[in-house]
Write a protein that binds this DNA or RNA. Structure first.
Length: 271
DNA sequence: AAGCTTTCCTGAACGC
DNA sequence: TGCGTTCAGGAAAGCT
């Protein structure tokens, strides 16, 4: 499931593959994957890809000065670059959209569970405010003071807060668990109860875990694949997600549910 | 208003 | 074997 490191991995690879390419046609295979296309004339959604940015888990492709393509992969969305229509060489069983380039190659949007979304925005729209996206977890302005301000007067459990994209953007269920394990903080603590030391450890662990995961091209647990269909490598570094035994103290890892999501944590290391 | 719950969807894994 | 049930998850809408 793509979180910040996976989306950043995809972004970097897309920059290499498709910057400067001319989108000549967008082929829609599943209507609901392309949220607001009925507001546009598809034949006019053409032009050069000039820039690709990431905001939290969102990808934004700038096309000329005219419009932006906003992409969210949710759980099973993939972007696969296919040189010269070599679609058969990739495991693309659930293609929802095809971006065709003038050069004959294309970008496939493949998504088993169809939660992923592609959306068109005019260039003057600010996506961060439109989608109410919080500060990016790897933004250098995300620091102790910022986290303390975010946590002030809130009773939410820290694990649930880390998943709230409106407050901090980019952290999903795998990395929230890894960050709290690394910071030795219980996922159950209400954020207004966190000490300054704990808040500082959470910030340090967030930077450490996410940047390491970016370095290793993300985590491929089940669905995540890179633009060239390769897997990431960070799954080899996971400490607590999907684990039975704590790698530090050998205690049994507890599995609980918070806000409808599963959480693994070590009750001995994470107090 | 903050913080819950529900909805969307499919394939894998499970139980009988 | 094969059927039915459960689970997984991000974000937004609908609740309280």
């Amino acid at each position: 499931m793509p979180e910040l490191p996976e989306v950043e991995t995809i972004r970097k690879e897309l920059v290499k593959q498709i910057i400067g390419k001319y989108i000549s046609d967008i082929h829609i295979l599943l209507d609901r994957s392309f949220v607001n296309h009925t507001q546009y004339d598809i034949s006019e959604l053409i032009g050069n890809i000039t820039q690709i940015d990431r905001y939290g888990k969102y990808l934004v492709m700038q096309v000329n000065q005219s419009f932006q393509i906003l992409i969210h992969l949710r759980m099973t969305g993939k972007l696969i670059y296919c040189p010269f229509q070599q679609q058969n060489s990739f495991k693309t069983n659930h293609i929802r959209l095809i971006f065709n380039f003038q050069t004959g190659d294309c970008l496939l949007f493949d998504d088993v569970r169809t939660f992923g979304k592609v959306e068109i925005f005019s260039s003057d729209l600010d996506i961060k405010s439109y989608k109410n996206i919080g500060i990016d977890a790897l933004d250098e302005d995300f620091n102790f003071n910022k986290l303390k301000a975010i946590c002030m007067n809130k009773k939410t459990q820290i694990k649930v807060l880390l998943l709230n994209q409106n407050l901090i953007a980019g952290i999903g269920n795998i990395y929230a668990q890894e960050i709290l394990f690394d910071a030795k903080v219980s996922p159950l603590i209400q954020v207004n109860q966190l000490t300054d030391k704990e808040l500082k450890r959470i910030v340090v662990s967030t930077k450490k875990i996410l940047s390491l995961a970016v370095k290793y091209n993300g985590t491929s647990i089940s669905d995540f694949r890179r633009v060239d269909d390769k897997t990431g490598e960070f799954q080899d570094f996971l400490q607590v997600y999907g684990k039975i035994t704590c790698p530090v103290c050998k205690s049994d890892i507890l599995k609980i549910r918070q806000g409808g999501r599963s959480t693994n944590y070590c009750p001995k290391c994470q107090i």
